[in-house]
Amino acid sequence: MRMASYLGRRLAYFVVSVLGVLVITFVLTRTLPGNPVYLLAGPLTDQEKVDAATRELGLDRPLPAQFVTYVGDLVHGDLGTSLRTSQPVVDDLASRWPATAELAILAILVAVTWALVVGTLAAVFPRSVFARVADLVGSLGVSVPEFWLATVVILVFFTSLGIAPAPIGRISGTPPGTVTGFYTVDAVLTADWSALRASLAQLLLPVLTLALTTGAPMMRTAREFMTGVLGSPYIRAGRALGIPPARLVVRHALPNALLPVTTMVATMFGYLLGGTVMVEFVFAWPGVGKYAVDSITASDYAPVMAVVVLSAIVYLLVYLVTDLVHLVVDPRSRI
């Protein structure tokens, strides 16, 4: 019963937040420079044509009615047309999202892994040199702008050492046959091993950049939480009972630290979406982020606003799912 009411409240929050997001983007879209009426009516025009264009665009109707149209268009997948590519924005996004998803998913996996391992070890050996180095890496990782880190890793690993490929996008050579749109997955499915090698090589530097910047705050959270857990009475009791320290950490302490880390992953997801925009741009990665920046450069605003509104909605969805997962995983939330 309690669980049902919590679930209902949580879903209601989600709907309200999505509405709030839509109101914000609606206002931003209406304030954008460049009068759409003149775009439609043409430069040499009279008042009559301007009025007709205004009516056609529905701009003479009251704002709430315009808002309903705006939301309706979004729901039907009408995100406008890109002036730069002269394609519907939704089609442009559909062809680009696998590039972004492949990069982001891999980055978050690498980030969570190193954050948990390093954070746990630093909590277990708090006075070691390792913990101090972890501290330093954590502080630097949260302070470094990811677009600058991206240029530095290119300088070091491509320009100077020559061990990474040139930053020219997802793959050099021919991409594997399309199955899912994820080059690494497609390469495995079509048994195209040279394409797998080539796409992994291209992924190396952007994933490294994003994993370092998004993993740093996660590592700090994991470390802080593990320190707290390791000092708690049940761990001391376990130690007094003679449970080997390694087993105590892995079996008894670590599962408790996973909950705050999942929340952290959800929070970092929003940051990751923003960071991917910059990193894709530096690595000429043909994903959604580069699409947004290229559109900004061309003063083409419909794609930018589409990316802005979709990123917020995706973030809210991820957060909702995280909360629901907590509900299932953490027995305390069911009381």
């Binding site: 709030g20 914000i24 206002v27 304030t31 954008l32 923003g274 900004i296 802005v308 917020a312």
Partner: peptide, 19 residues
């Protein structure tokens, strides 16, 4: 919360374009 649902960088991009 609605404002915080946006990735900071992307919200900043949207508002900068609008203003």
């Amino acid at each position: 919360e609605s404002f915080q649902a946006f990735p900071t960088m992307l919200l900043a991009m949207g508002v900068t374009l609008a203003l």
